[in-house]
């Protein structure tokens, strides 16, 4: 055989890096969809609070805050998505350089020691690969910090949902309906928290 084994090995490694990006993207998509749901829920809650009148004034204020929260969350997620789209190019570059370096190393190994130009080629390849990996690491750091920022925002969303639950208790005849809405808010925000935890654990590059 003409040493296809190392190539296959590199392909598998590359595809796992791309698979990580796909997982990150899927998680972001799930959060964006949930943020859209919160926005709608918040709109409904605002209408419900209006119908409840004076008894649900506090609930109405909180619903407005939750709507703003959903909009901020959507914005954050959209910038996260831009980051991961950008990382596809860097990951592809890393995969390509890794593959080329690996095949070239195999070719040099088959040719025996002392092939003229081999050392320079290896050095060039390693430098290019290191540059791409550094780019990817920088992106990974930005992504992690953006996820942390979003986690803080979601903490605030959680506080708003809990406050809405308290306000719902003062909703008079509308109290059961308001309680239901605030419970839904809390559940959806818990779901986003879980997704962000998964996202926080994902790395675009291995440490």
């Amino acid at each position: 055989m003409n040493a296809p084994q190392p190539n296959l090995h590199v392909k598998a490694r590359g595809s796992s890096e791309l698979a990580r990006i796909v997982r990150v993207n899927e998680e972001i998509k799930a959060i964006v969809a949930t943020a859209f749901r919160i926005n709608l829920m918040a709109l409904n809650a605002i209408f419900l609070a209006k119908r409840a009148g004076n008894a649900a004034l506090g609930f109405g204020v909180l619903s407005n805050e939750l709507r703003r929260f959903a909009q901020d969350l959507t914005r954050n997620m959209s910038s996260l998505r831009d980051m991961t789209s950008g990382s596809v190019g860097s990951v592809t570059g890393v995969v390509q350089y890794q593959r080329n370096s690996s095949i070239l190393a195999e070719a040099i190994r088959l040719s025996g020691d002392g092939v003229p130009g081999a050392r320079e080629a290896r050095r060039r390849g390693a430098a290019r690969l290191a540059a791409q990996q550094a780019k990817l690491r920088a992106l990974d750091i930005r992504l992690r910090s953006a996820v942390e920022e979003t986690q803080q925002l979601v903490e605030l969303g959680g506080v708003l949902a809990r406050s809405a639950k308290i306000e719902a208790a003062y909703g008079g005849t509308f109290s059961p309906a308001l309680m239901q809405v605030s419970t839904d808010f809390a559940e959806v925000i818990a779901q986003i928290k879980r997704s962000l935890e998964i996202l926080g654990k994902e790395r675009l590059v291995k440490d």
Partner: peptide, 19 residues
């Protein structure tokens, strides 16, 4: 093609300086 590069490179290097 890509898959045969190692064997072409080594065959070439055996007979001529690839640089």
């Amino acid at each position: 093609g890509i898959e045969i590069f190692p064997s072409v490179f080594s065959a070439l290097s055996a007979e001529c300086d690839p640089t």
